[in-house]
Amino acid sequence: MKTKIQVSDLKVHYGNIQALNGISFDVYENEILGIIGPAQSGKTTLLKVINRTLEFAQGTTVEGSVQLDGVDIYSIRDVHGLRRRIGMVLPLPVGLPLSIYDNVAFAPRTAGMRKKAELDEIVERCLQQAALWDEVKDRLDSLGTKLSGGQQQRLTIARALSHQPEILCLDEFSIAVDPITTMRIEDVLKTLKDEMTILLVTNLVQQAKRLANRTAFMLNGDLIEIDDTDVIFSDNPASQSTFDYITGNFG
Protein backbone atom coordinates (compact mmCIF):
# COMPACT_ATOMS: atom_id res chain seq x y z
CA MET A 1 0.00 0.00 0.00
CA LYS A 2 1.23 3.47 -0.88
CA THR A 3 2.00 5.83 1.95
CA LYS A 4 0.09 9.11 1.66
CA ILE A 5 1.10 10.87 4.85
CA GLN A 6 4.15 10.12 6.90
CA VAL A 7 4.26 11.66 10.37
CA SER A 8 7.59 11.40 12.15
CA ASP A 9 8.37 12.41 15.71
CA LEU A 10 5.78 15.20 15.67
CA LYS A 11 5.87 17.47 18.71
CA VAL A 12 3.56 20.43 19.23
CA HIS A 13 3.71 22.97 22.05
CA TYR A 14 1.12 25.63 22.82
CA GLY A 15 3.34 27.92 24.85
CA ASN A 16 4.43 25.75 27.75
CA ILE A 17 1.82 23.07 27.20
CA GLN A 18 2.85 20.10 25.13
CA ALA A 19 -0.04 18.83 23.04
CA LEU A 20 1.77 16.15 21.04
CA ASN A 21 4.74 14.29 22.52
CA GLY A 22 6.56 13.14 19.42
CA ILE A 23 4.28 10.77 17.54
CA SER A 24 5.05 8.84 14.36
CA PHE A 25 2.78 6.93 12.03
CA ASP A 26 1.88 6.48 8.37
CA VAL A 27 -1.41 6.97 6.61
CA TYR A 28 -1.95 4.87 3.50
CA GLU A 29 -3.60 6.08 0.34
CA ASN A 30 -7.36 5.44 0.03
CA GLU A 31 -7.81 4.20 3.56
CA ILE A 32 -10.01 5.50 6.31
CA LEU A 33 -7.86 5.99 9.37
CA GLY A 34 -9.93 6.32 12.52
CA ILE A 35 -8.37 8.34 15.32
CA ILE A 36 -9.93 7.82 18.72
CA GLY A 37 -9.06 8.95 22.19
CA PRO A 38 -10.44 11.02 25.06
CA ALA A 39 -10.44 14.81 25.16
CA GLN A 40 -7.05 16.58 25.32
CA SER A 41 -5.31 13.69 23.60
CA GLY A 42 -4.11 15.81 20.66
CA LYS A 43 -6.42 14.53 17.92
CA THR A 44 -7.54 17.94 16.69
CA THR A 45 -4.02 19.34 16.99
CA LEU A 46 -2.83 16.57 14.74
CA LEU A 47 -5.33 17.49 12.03
CA LYS A 48 -4.43 21.16 12.32
CA VAL A 49 -0.77 20.37 11.82
CA ILE A 50 -1.57 18.45 8.66
CA ASN A 51 -3.45 21.30 6.97
CA ARG A 52 -1.15 23.89 8.53
CA THR A 53 -3.86 25.99 10.13
CA LEU A 54 -2.06 25.67 13.44
CA GLU A 55 0.17 28.57 12.42
CA PHE A 56 -2.84 30.67 13.28
CA ALA A 57 -2.32 30.31 17.01
CA GLN A 58 0.16 32.53 18.79
CA GLY A 59 3.13 30.92 20.51
CA THR A 60 2.72 27.53 18.88
CA THR A 61 5.77 25.52 17.93
CA VAL A 62 5.82 22.43 15.76
CA GLU A 63 8.79 20.03 15.64
CA GLY A 64 9.29 16.85 13.68
CA SER A 65 8.04 16.37 10.16
CA VAL A 66 4.89 15.59 8.26
CA GLN A 67 5.40 14.37 4.71
CA LEU A 68 2.66 14.41 2.15
CA ASP A 69 3.49 12.21 -0.86
CA GLY A 70 7.11 12.31 0.32
CA VAL A 71 7.28 16.12 0.53
CA ASP A 72 7.64 17.86 3.89
CA ILE A 73 4.55 20.03 4.20
CA TYR A 74 6.50 22.73 6.02
CA SER A 75 8.72 23.09 2.97
CA ILE A 76 5.73 23.83 0.76
CA ARG A 77 5.65 27.52 -0.10
CA ASP A 78 2.06 27.66 -1.33
CA VAL A 79 0.30 26.96 1.94
CA HIS A 80 -3.07 27.87 0.42
CA GLY A 81 -2.59 25.34 -2.35
CA LEU A 82 -1.67 22.76 0.30
CA ARG A 83 -4.84 23.47 2.22
CA ARG A 84 -6.89 23.00 -0.90
CA ARG A 85 -5.47 19.49 -1.20
CA ILE A 86 -6.93 18.75 2.23
CA GLY A 87 -10.60 18.94 3.09
CA MET A 88 -11.29 19.84 6.71
CA VAL A 89 -14.53 19.37 8.61
CA LEU A 90 -14.48 20.93 12.08
CA PRO A 91 -16.50 19.61 15.04
CA LEU A 92 -18.84 22.57 15.31
CA PRO A 93 -20.47 23.50 12.02
CA VAL A 94 -19.31 26.81 10.63
CA GLY A 95 -21.55 28.08 7.89
CA LEU A 96 -19.75 31.09 6.50
CA PRO A 97 -22.01 34.16 6.41
CA LEU A 98 -22.64 33.64 2.70
CA SER A 99 -25.36 31.96 0.70
CA ILE A 100 -25.45 28.17 0.59
CA TYR A 101 -24.23 28.29 -2.99
CA ASP A 102 -21.38 30.67 -2.16
CA ASN A 103 -20.36 28.54 0.80
CA VAL A 104 -19.76 25.54 -1.41
CA ALA A 105 -18.34 27.61 -4.27
CA PHE A 106 -15.96 29.40 -1.89
CA ALA A 107 -12.91 27.19 -2.31
CA PRO A 108 -13.19 26.71 -6.09
CA ARG A 109 -13.51 30.48 -6.42
CA THR A 110 -10.50 31.20 -4.25
CA ALA A 111 -8.62 28.80 -6.50
CA GLY A 112 -9.63 30.99 -9.44
CA MET A 113 -12.59 29.13 -10.96
CA ARG A 114 -15.11 31.55 -12.42
CA LYS A 115 -17.26 29.62 -14.91
CA LYS A 116 -20.86 29.46 -13.73
CA ALA A 117 -21.59 26.08 -15.25
CA GLU A 118 -18.59 24.42 -13.61
CA LEU A 119 -19.40 25.99 -10.26
CA ASP A 120 -23.03 24.88 -10.55
CA GLU A 121 -21.91 21.35 -11.19
CA ILE A 122 -19.49 21.34 -8.24
CA VAL A 123 -22.09 22.79 -5.89
CA GLU A 124 -24.66 20.19 -6.86
CA ARG A 125 -22.23 17.27 -6.71
CA CYS A 126 -20.85 18.25 -3.29
CA LEU A 127 -24.24 18.91 -1.77
CA GLN A 128 -25.38 15.54 -3.11
CA GLN A 129 -22.39 13.84 -1.56
CA ALA A 130 -23.02 15.52 1.77
CA ALA A 131 -26.66 14.35 1.69
CA LEU A 132 -27.91 17.93 1.77
CA TRP A 133 -28.94 18.60 -1.83
CA ASP A 134 -32.57 17.54 -1.55
CA GLU A 135 -33.16 19.80 1.43
CA VAL A 136 -31.62 22.97 0.03
CA LYS A 137 -31.79 22.73 -3.76
CA ASP A 138 -34.68 25.23 -3.89
CA ARG A 139 -33.02 27.82 -1.68
CA LEU A 140 -29.37 27.90 -2.62
CA ASP A 141 -29.43 31.69 -2.31
CA SER A 142 -30.42 31.80 1.36
CA LEU A 143 -27.80 32.27 4.02
CA GLY A 144 -25.79 29.23 5.04
CA THR A 145 -25.84 30.40 8.65
CA LYS A 146 -29.65 30.13 8.70
CA LEU A 147 -29.54 26.35 8.29
CA SER A 148 -30.02 24.09 11.28
CA GLY A 149 -26.93 22.77 13.06
CA GLY A 150 -27.04 19.40 11.35
CA GLN A 151 -27.60 20.97 7.96
CA GLN A 152 -24.72 23.38 8.53
CA GLN A 153 -22.48 20.46 9.38
CA ARG A 154 -23.38 18.77 6.11
CA LEU A 155 -22.78 22.11 4.40
CA THR A 156 -19.26 22.16 5.82
CA ILE A 157 -18.75 18.64 4.54
CA ALA A 158 -19.95 19.71 1.09
CA ARG A 159 -17.56 22.65 1.31
CA ALA A 160 -14.66 20.43 2.28
CA LEU A 161 -15.35 18.26 -0.78
CA SER A 162 -15.70 21.23 -3.11
CA HIS A 163 -12.01 21.49 -3.92
CA GLN A 164 -11.68 17.78 -4.62
CA PRO A 165 -9.18 17.16 -1.85
CA GLU A 166 -6.75 14.27 -1.80
CA ILE A 167 -7.21 13.98 1.94
CA LEU A 168 -10.40 14.51 3.91
CA CYS A 169 -10.04 15.25 7.61
CA LEU A 170 -13.18 14.91 9.67
CA ASP A 171 -13.04 16.14 13.24
CA GLU A 172 -15.95 14.65 15.14
CA PHE A 173 -18.31 15.53 12.34
CA SER A 174 -21.30 13.74 13.86
CA ILE A 175 -21.54 15.85 17.03
CA ALA A 176 -24.21 18.10 15.55
CA VAL A 177 -25.79 15.61 13.19
CA ASP A 178 -28.70 13.28 13.92
CA PRO A 179 -28.05 9.51 13.78
CA ILE A 180 -29.85 8.91 10.49
CA THR A 181 -27.95 11.65 8.71
CA THR A 182 -24.76 10.37 10.32
CA MET A 183 -25.44 6.99 8.72
CA ARG A 184 -26.00 8.60 5.33
CA ILE A 185 -22.75 10.53 5.59
CA GLU A 186 -20.93 7.39 6.69
CA ASP A 187 -22.17 5.64 3.55
CA VAL A 188 -20.84 8.54 1.52
CA LEU A 189 -17.47 8.27 3.24
CA LYS A 190 -17.25 4.59 2.33
CA THR A 191 -17.58 5.45 -1.36
CA LEU A 192 -15.35 8.52 -1.13
CA LYS A 193 -12.56 6.29 0.13
CA ASP A 194 -11.94 5.21 -3.47
CA GLU A 195 -11.07 8.78 -4.42
CA MET A 196 -9.28 10.08 -1.35
CA THR A 197 -7.62 9.32 1.95
CA ILE A 198 -9.79 9.95 4.96
CA LEU A 199 -8.73 10.82 8.50
CA LEU A 200 -11.63 10.36 10.83
CA VAL A 201 -11.27 11.79 14.33
CA THR A 202 -14.18 10.57 16.35
CA ASN A 203 -15.43 10.28 19.89
CA LEU A 204 -17.78 7.51 18.87
CA VAL A 205 -15.58 4.43 19.01
CA GLN A 206 -18.27 2.47 17.23
CA GLN A 207 -18.05 4.87 14.33
CA ALA A 208 -14.37 4.10 13.97
CA LYS A 209 -15.23 0.42 14.15
CA ARG A 210 -17.83 0.77 11.40
CA LEU A 211 -15.77 2.86 9.03
CA ALA A 212 -12.06 2.72 9.63
CA ASN A 213 -9.64 0.34 7.93
CA ARG A 214 -7.14 1.09 10.62
CA THR A 215 -7.56 2.85 13.92
CA ALA A 216 -5.18 4.89 16.02
CA PHE A 217 -5.66 5.36 19.74
CA MET A 218 -4.28 8.56 21.25
CA LEU A 219 -3.98 9.50 24.90
CA ASN A 220 -2.54 12.70 26.42
CA GLY A 221 -0.53 13.59 23.35
CA ASP A 222 0.87 10.11 22.82
CA LEU A 223 0.00 7.65 20.12
CA ILE A 224 -0.68 4.54 22.16
CA GLU A 225 -1.14 2.25 19.21
CA ILE A 226 -2.19 2.12 15.58
CA ASP A 227 -3.32 -1.07 13.92
CA ASP A 228 -6.01 -2.67 11.80
CA THR A 229 -9.40 -1.81 13.19
CA ASP A 230 -10.12 -5.49 13.73
CA VAL A 231 -7.08 -5.78 15.97
CA ILE A 232 -7.80 -2.59 17.93
CA PHE A 233 -11.34 -3.68 18.60
CA SER A 234 -10.42 -7.27 19.35
CA ASP A 235 -10.14 -8.65 22.85
CA ASN A 236 -6.39 -8.23 22.89
CA PRO A 237 -5.06 -4.98 21.40
CA ALA A 238 -1.41 -4.27 22.12
CA SER A 239 -2.14 -1.85 24.93
CA GLN A 240 -4.35 -2.40 27.93
CA SER A 241 -5.45 1.28 27.93
CA THR A 242 -6.77 0.88 24.38
CA PHE A 243 -8.88 -2.00 25.51
CA ASP A 244 -10.08 -0.08 28.56
CA TYR A 245 -11.01 2.96 26.49
CA ILE A 246 -12.90 1.01 23.86
CA THR A 247 -14.78 -1.08 26.35
CA GLY A 248 -15.70 2.05 28.26
CA ASN A 249 -13.66 1.47 31.40
CA PHE A 250 -12.38 5.05 31.25
CA GLY A 251 -12.62 8.17 29.16
Binding site: N51, T53, F56, H80, G81, L82, R83, R84, I86, M88, L90, L92, V94, L96, P97, L98, F106, A107, R109, T110, A111, T156, R159, A160, S162, H163
Partner: peptide, 25 residues
Protein backbone atom coordinates in the same frame (compact mmCIF):
# COMPACT_ATOMS: atom_id res chain seq x y z
CA UNK B 1 -12.48 33.11 14.75
CA UNK B 2 -14.13 29.94 13.50
CA UNK B 3 -15.03 31.83 10.30
CA UNK B 4 -11.38 32.71 9.78
CA UNK B 5 -10.27 29.16 10.46
CA UNK B 6 -12.92 27.67 8.20
CA UNK B 7 -12.03 29.99 5.35
CA UNK B 8 -8.29 29.38 5.79
CA UNK B 9 -8.85 25.65 5.84
CA UNK B 10 -10.49 26.05 2.44
CA UNK B 11 -7.27 27.48 1.09
CA UNK B 12 -8.24 31.13 1.15
CA UNK B 13 -5.40 33.64 1.39
CA UNK B 14 -5.50 36.23 4.11
CA UNK B 15 -6.87 38.83 1.77
CA UNK B 16 -9.53 36.43 0.46
CA UNK B 17 -10.55 35.68 4.03
CA UNK B 18 -10.92 39.40 4.67
CA UNK B 19 -12.92 40.44 1.65
CA UNK B 20 -14.98 37.32 1.15
CA UNK B 21 -15.79 36.43 4.74
CA UNK B 22 -14.91 39.10 7.29
CA UNK B 23 -16.22 42.17 5.47
CA UNK B 24 -19.59 40.56 4.63
CA UNK B 25 -19.89 39.22 8.17
Amino acid sequence: DSYREAAEALGATRWQVIYRVLLPA
